[in-house]
Design a protein around this nucleic acid. Sequence first.
DNA 1: CCAAAAGTGTTTGCAGTACACCCATGT
DNA 2: ACATGGGTGTACTGCAAACACTTTTGG
Lengths: 249, 249
Amino acid sequence: MQQQIIFSTDKPSIKVKSFSSIQNEIQSGNPIALSVDCVIFGFDENKLKVLLIRSDLKKYQDKWTLLGDLIAPNEDLDDAAYRILKQRTGLNNVYLEQVHTFGKVKRHPAGRVITVAYYSLINIKHHKLNILDNELHWHDIENISELAFDHQEIFNTCYERLQKRVQEHPLGFNLLPKKFSLRDLQNLYEAILGFKMDRRNFRKKFFSMDFLIDLDEIEQNVPHRPGKLYQFNYAKYEKKKKKWAGIDF
Amino acid sequence: MQQQIIFSTDKPSIKVKSFSSIQNEIQSGNPIALSVDCVIFGFDENKLKVLLIRSDLKKYQDKWTLLGDLIAPNEDLDDAAYRILKQRTGLNNVYLEQVHTFGKVKRHPAGRVITVAYYSLINIKHHKLNILDNELHWHDIENISELAFDHQEIFNTCYERLQKRVQEHPLGFNLLPKKFSLRDLQNLYEAILGFKMDRRNFRKKFFSMDFLIDLDEIEQNVPHRPGKLYQFNYAKYEKKKKKWAGIDF
DNA sequence: CCAAAAGTGTTTGCAGTACACCCATGT
DNA sequence: ACATGGGTGTACTGCAAACACTTTTGG
C-alpha cells in the first residue's frame, strides 16, 4: 500500500542542474571558510593534559585556543589535520581521529568558519614539542577554562569521545612508556575516566584479556616494592578484536 | 624534567594575526564549498530502507545519491541539514544526528566540496513524502549499490553508526507505530542489526528494562494468535538513563 | 484440526563487584 | 622497624545464552 505511493508508476520529475551551474554555485558566492581544530591529549605525572596555544587573534590573546588553521583548497581534510598539528607543534606520526564538525553561524568572531574537530592521544615523553610559538604547552585537563570562541564546547565533545573510545579500544597504551606497570596503566585509566577503580579487579580484567606481555622486568628506583613491567601485544589484539562493552577489548 | 622544557621560562614568541588578515583569508581565496548529505533510514514491511534520489547532475542521472545540498552562508550547519531534508522530501520534525565529515579533494566531480553527513530514522507510515522530485523513494538496504561519488562510503559510515547507536539508545521506537507488538520490535532490531535473536531472551530483556507500557490491547486481523500491544515509555527512560552496553538502556 | 505465531522458565556459565591480607623493597 | 605500594583469591550477584512446550487465534 504505502509502497505503491512511494514507487508511483507516474513518471516523477527530475530536476537536474548542469555541471557548470553547480560549479558556479561552488566557486562564486560562498564565503564559508573551513578550519580544523585539534584536541591533543597527553599524559604525564598521572594527569591527563591537553595542548593549547594563545589565540592568533590580537583581541583574544589572553584566551587559550585549540590548535587550528584553515584548510587549504587542495588538501584532503584529514591531511589538513596532520599538517596543522605538524605546523603548530612539530609533531609527526600521530594518529588523529575526527570527532565532530561545528558550524554555528556566529561561532567565530572573524567570519563564517566551520571547523572540523580532531583529537589524538600522545605520549608526552615520546613526543618532544619542536615549536613553542604562542606559548604552546600542556594544560591539566582539570584546570582548563576561558577557552576562546566555542573551543570549550569543542574540547568537551572531544573529551567525552575520548572517554568513550578508551573504554572500547586500546588507545591508552599510546600514552604510556613502552614498558609500563599495571599501576601506570590503572593511573592512566583513572585519569581519563575520572574515577578510581579497584586494583585487584583492574588487574584481573587486563590479565583475562590476555593482551599484556610480561617482560620479566621490574620497575627501578621506586621507594617500595617494584612492580612488574609489561608491553601491550598489538599483534594479538588485532587478531582477536571483536565487540565489547566497558573496558572490554 | 620534561615539564621544565615544556613550560620553559624563556618568553616564547607569539605569532598574532590581525583580525582583518584573518578575515581576508576567510573571504578571499578559499574555493571550498560545504554541503550536507542526509542518510534517512526508514522501516517498512520488516525491512530497513533508505531514501535516495537521482543525482542532480546530468552526467550522473543513472546513479542514486543521498539527499544533499550546499550550505547557505548564513545558516547554522544543523539548520542546513534540516532545511535540505525539508526541501528534498517535505519532511519536518525529524531528528537528525551528525555523523562524519568527508573531505577528500577529489570526492566530488563538480569541484572541491566537503560534505557533512547526517542520519535519521523515521517511521515511513507516519511521514508521507510530499516531494517526489528526482525519483525520491525508499530503497531496501540490502539492494543499494551504484551510489554516485563517495555516497556509498558515506552511507556505510552512517549505517554502522546507526547499528551502534541503536544498541545504546532507544532510537528504534521512532520507526514503529505508536502501538507495537514485541514481534514488531524484534523484527526491527533484527533488520537493523542484521541477525536473528532468541525470542524469549529478547522479551526478557525488554521487559526487565521496564520501559514498555502494556496497553492491554491486542493486534487485529492477524491470521494467528494476536500479540499484545505496547508503547515506549519515554518519560521513564529519560529519568533512568545511564550507561549501557549492548542493548542496555 | 491444522497452521502460525504468542507466550512462558530454567539452567548454566561468565563477568563484574566487593572485599582483606601478606609480600618485597627502600629508608 | 616501618612505610609504601605490589601481588593475590573468594564469594556473591546479575546478565547472557541455550533451549521446548503449551496456548490462542484464524482458516
